[in-house]
């Protein structure tokens, strides 16, 4: 299915993708699951609060997304990383193994802006930690939903070129050092999508996602290999495990 999104090439091989809130599908069950509740076990009070927070999302989410296409240099192939354009990414074996068959890489970023995180912080300051926590959780699920959409859109764009895509991987996860964010962001113009990096490589706004997707004729999206990763307490691992059980 082709997604009703559009893109603009702002520089050679750098695209801004327009994602409207109406394009998103916020899964309330996923929110409840990430809070830890078994299906249909969340108290009404919190369920209603989540509904209220979701109803605020269209006004409070300032979605921006984009990506850069770059060639993977096969001649400089290593087991623990990939050379994208002329820059070596120390991705660790886990991520490298998933992407190494690709000819191109889509380096992507997206964000929902800082309104939700400010709202959460304000609620906490005003002594309402439970609602603050719910707002933060809904914001996290929302930015993941934006990332899902961007991932699918890149897949559709590549299909037009008869190419397939891989899963997505982000610095800070799967043993890929978060410091490599600096390298990843070097592919974009300054302040791309309104995201900046701190010296310690964290993104501001906090509710942002960055990463890489492999592109090639002989690659495909498949199940994540969480069981091969050493991060037993990873957020993604926990969410994927819970979603499998629903």
């Amino acid at each position: 299915m082709s997604l009703l999104l559009s893109q603009t090439e702002i520089e050679k091989n750098i695209f801004e993708v327009v994602i409207n809130f109406s394009n998103l599908q916020i899964d309330k069950k996923e929110i409840e699951s990430s809070l830890g509740y078994p299906e249909d076990m969340i108290p009404n009070h919190f369920s209603e609060l989540i509904d209220e927070i979701i109803s605020e999302l269209p006004d409070k989410c300032k979605i921006k997304a984009g990506y850069c296409l770059a060639e993977i240099n096969k001649q400089k192939e290593k087991k623990d990383g990939l050379t994208i354009a002329d820059k070596f990414f120390n991705m660790d074996r886990l991520v490298t193994a998933q992407i190494k068959k690709s000819e191109l890489a889509a380096l992507f970023v997206c964000t929902i802006g800082n309104v939700m995180e400010n709202w959460s912080r304000q609620l906490l300051t005003n002594g309402d930690p439970a609602t603050a926590f719910l707002v933060d959780t809904v914001a996290s699920i929302t930015v993941e939903s934006v990332t899902d959409l961007l991932h699918d859109f890149i897949g559709d764009e590549m299909k037009k070129r008869n190419l397939n895509i891989t899963n997505r991987y982000s610095p800070g996860y799967c043993n890929w050092p978060v410091s490599e964010q600096q390298l990843l962001f070097s592919f974009f113009p300054q302040n791309f999508c309104g995201i900046i990096l701190t010296d310690s490589s964290l993104m501001i706004p906090i509710k942002s996602v960055s990463g890489v997707i492999g592109i090639g004729a002989n690659v495909k999206r498949k199940d994540y290999v969480c069981d091969q990763c050493g991060m037993k307490d990873c957020t993604y691992r926990a969410v994927r495990s819970r979603l499998k059980s629903i």
Partner: peptide, 15 residues
């Protein structure tokens, strides 16, 4: 800790 700007978890623990 230094280099990390995330505060929600820390604030919840504090409370």
């Amino acid at each position: 800790v230094a280099g990390d700007l995330h505060d929600i978890g820390k604030n919840l623990v504090s409370m």
